[in-house]
């Protein structure tokens, strides 16, 4: 587990220094661990794990948007676990389930990977529709059509800088809608 977290910390440092490939490796490595954490938390709260993929994606989005709060001199494990715990409790509260998920026992959680579900799909898509026009267009272009920032800029007749800003704001807006989300 320690080695795994050390590896994550290393990838995050490289990502912070501008290494997009390291960042992609980090996120891909986090996905199964976060998925396992979400399933385990839902199981402990005796709730169906139908929403595990939603919670995992919300946690991944939070890690992305709040990554500037990780101090590169600290271990990354406690930082990730605190975010996982926060998002899990948030989700359980929203769903009206039990919320007393102890943060203890999360140590081993990040060391196990959950098997891939049949469909790696969440129900988040509708939230994108609620974003302001420009942000929505940019997020859809990159998310669905798999085109780059430069291609998006050309297609939407925007500067690359404006695309970057719209993308970032769109993701932040998505996290907000996610959080308020379902009753």
């Amino acid at each position: 587990m320690k080695e795994r977290e050390a590896l994550w910390a290393e990838m995050m440092r490289a990502a912070n220094a501008g290494d997009a490939v390291a960042y992609q490796r980090l996120l891909k490595s986090l996905v199964p661990a976060l998925r396992a954490a979400a399933r385990r938390g839902l199981a402990r709260a005796r709730t169906s794990d139908a929403d595990a993929e939603d919670i995992m994606q919300e946690t991944l989005l939070a890690i992305h948007l709040k990554r500037h709060t990780w101090d590169a001199d600290r271990p990354i494990g406690p930082w990730i676990r605190a975010i996982v715990h926060n998002k899990l409790v948030d989700n359980l509260r929203r769903r009206g389930g039990r919320v007393d998920v102890p943060i203890e026992g999360f140590e081993e959680i990040l060391s196990a990977d959950a098997p891939k579900p049949v469909l790696e799909v969440s129900d988040v898509e509708p939230y994108i529709g609620g974003l302001p026009h420009r942000q929505r267009e940019v997020v859809y272009a990159i998310l669905r059509e798999e085109i780059s920032i430069r291609e998006t800029a050309e297609r939407l007749k925007m500067t690359e800088g404006a695309v970057r800003v719209a993308l970032h704001r769109g993701l932040a807006g998505l996290a907000k809608r996610f959080k308020r989300g379902e009753s």
Partner: peptide, 22 residues
């Protein structure tokens, strides 16, 4: 939303990193 698509989108946003909290 497919998880792979989300990862790709987050990576596309990686250059926009906010400043430290301090």
């Amino acid at each position: 939303m497919r998880t792979d698509d989300l990862v790709r989108t987050l990576v596309a946003d990686h250059a926009t990193r906010e400043g430290p909290v301090g």
